[in-house]
Nucleic acid binder design. Structure first.
Lengths: 338, 338
DNA sequence: CTGTTAGCGCCTTCAA
DNA sequence: TTGAAGGCGCTAACAG
């Protein structure tokens, strides 16, 4: 029951194992007859390449790994679906791993992946610590960051693909201003997240330049979930809520706000306007129809794969760069003129 | 920049590579001195085992793969989190893959995994076709099904761990009966899903035995999402809705029902009672508090890992069996006495 | 067109 | 306690 190898096939076919290898790889220089005979035997005996041996010999596998901070966030689930498609188009397989840059055992994960000689890694993270981590490993395996890093604070730039959070924040502020809002709140910015910080900063700066007042409510936890949004919103609603609009750090937070609003008998957008960020699929459902910023997940993933494979295949020393993709405002029904 | 190997270390240490191998594996028979020297050199030069080579030599890797029909379903996300923990406790790594039994390229995925000599596979599926697929591969790699198979229709039993759907359906029917409901609907059963079929069958049988009338609304799509639930519920609400309770095939469907209910200005549980199945975390949120059946995801995953590793490690021919874990009724606030 | 040989990095007897 | 040698399954360069 131990797996059949090319040697077995070679013996059965009465040829050498290199001939078998050649036919399996479609290398030229095998006569039609032997090729057919060999392929028949392979089928017949259920031969299956040992990818470990192949990768060992090649010095590299065809696996691209992506590291996600959580499977539970629908944003990532949607991104991975796209990622998978592009990676497969290019002839690679995707291996989904679960890990956060902040975890103490994150280096073990990297060691494991490098130990397996994965072709490359796409790291989903918006932690401040990710550039440091990446720089520690970038010499040993191609890595692309899906997320943003603090350009000012990072000496060596790392290859990254991300939404343009500054543009997003600005767009949101301008949109709310245009609708007549003058008192707004930014809900749920996470200190540890660079994306959140940029969004928040850009939003508040733009808003204030336009003469709006902005209240910022930080998210002290490490997660941006519906539940967290719910609790933050309750805080706002209990603590005299004078503002006419809320810009949530992301859609999940916004969904939590909607839940809390119902509890407080506040209707959206009649009592206040609400905006999110991410365009997770649930946000587009009827009865939700959240106005949000669409980060163009497909394009993000396409670029990330491109950027990674450029490094994998040509091992080019192309200057690592931060590629920004501007989001698009999606007007749905949670914002109205005031 | 090519990775440093045991040979490199051996040369630097002035020993043979087998000595290095021995110290790396903690094998006995290496003097303290050489051991320390070698370990120091490894650290110093950033040595990292080549797991491909090790696995090739061992004939087996330490990767356990799990195949999910979708990352987007929160049920799976929650399960994988637990799975990951148990797998790591046992010294293995988890590789998450995305694939449905119904997909045409599912065998490619299996070939890929077997090609990589993964230690085992946990297949998440409730498709009718999964036993057939498993039987095709079970001789080549340990597989455990997370889901149910049709015991009557399957000649050779496959190792499986699953919720007791029959018990669940019965419990739901009895619970609703106890609350005084006499006209109920079962919403969203998927033909292609064995779990759904069993739940539905058991629910309707029990209900009818108790003298209740049951209307069944099948889900014709392949997915059990909030959106699907929403559309099914609308169908019910438009088509004179006389029943006093709805049992949804799963929580996601139930959430869709809640969305639709709001649109129709129906309140839960005043206008009708609602039950789900799965206990996804979102269902426990305030303002949702869905009454549901908890499948005990942790226990399910613990058992699945146990069952798989039993086969991996002792390659025992233990009679493959279907392990059923009965769910628990979680009374929250979407059901009331009628 | 095909076989021989060497090597990928590691582990594991068998001798010394 | 250590080294030499062979093998895991496959690829590839070099002969024939």
């Amino acid at each position: 029951m131990s797996p059949v190898t090319i040697k077995d096939i070679a013996r059965l076919a009465g040829v050498s194992h290199s001939t078998v290898s050649r036919t399996l790889n479609g290398s030229p220089g095998v006569s039609e007859k032997t090729r057919d005979r060999i392929l028949a035997l392979c089928r017949q005996h259920g031969y299956q390449v040992n990818l470990l041996a192949r990768s060992l010999s090649a010095g590299r596998s065809d696996i691209i790994s992506c590291i996600l901070p959580g499977l539970d966030n629908p944003l990532f689930a949607e991104m991975v679906l796209n990622l998978e498609r592009y990676v497969q188009q290019r002839g690679y397989h995707i291996m989904v791993c679960h890990g956060r840059v902040e975890d103490s055992n994150i280096s073990q994960l990297f060691d494991f992946l490098i130990g397996h000689r994965v072709a490359g890694i796409i790291l989903f993270s918006s932690s401040r610590q990710s550039p440091e981590l990446i720089q520690r490993y970038i010499g040993r395996v191609p890595i692309v960051l899906q997320g943003v890093f603090d350009v000012a604070a990072t000496s060596i730039p790392v290859p990254a693909v991300t939404t343009d959070n500054l543009a997003g924040g600005r767009m949101a502020a301008e949109y709310l201003y245009k609708l007549g809002h003058r008192r707004v709140v930014y809900l749920g910015t996470r200190q540890s997240s660079v994306s959140h910080s940029l969004r928040c900063e850009s939003f508040t700066n733009t808003a204030r330049q336009l003469g709006m007042s902005v209240r910022v409510l930080p998210n002290e936890t490490l997660f941006s979930t519906i539940e967290v949004g719910y609790h933050l919103a309750k805080q706002i609603f209990l603590d005299d809520f004078q503002e006419t609009a809320i810009f949530a750090a992301c859609d999940s937070i916004a969904l939590g706000v909607m839940t809390a609003a119902k509890e407080f008998h506040l209707s959206i957008p009649q009592d206040f306007s609400l905006m999110g960020f991410d365009n997770i699929s649930y946000a587009s459902y009827p009865q939700i129809r959240l106005t949000t910023l669409d980060p163009h997940k497909k394009e993000l993933m396409e670029r990330a794969v491109e950027c990674l494979l450029e490094r994998v295949e040509s091992s080019s020393k192309r200057e690592p760069a931060l590629r920004l993709i501007p989001p698009t405002l999606l007007e749905r029904k949670t914002c109205s003129r005031v």
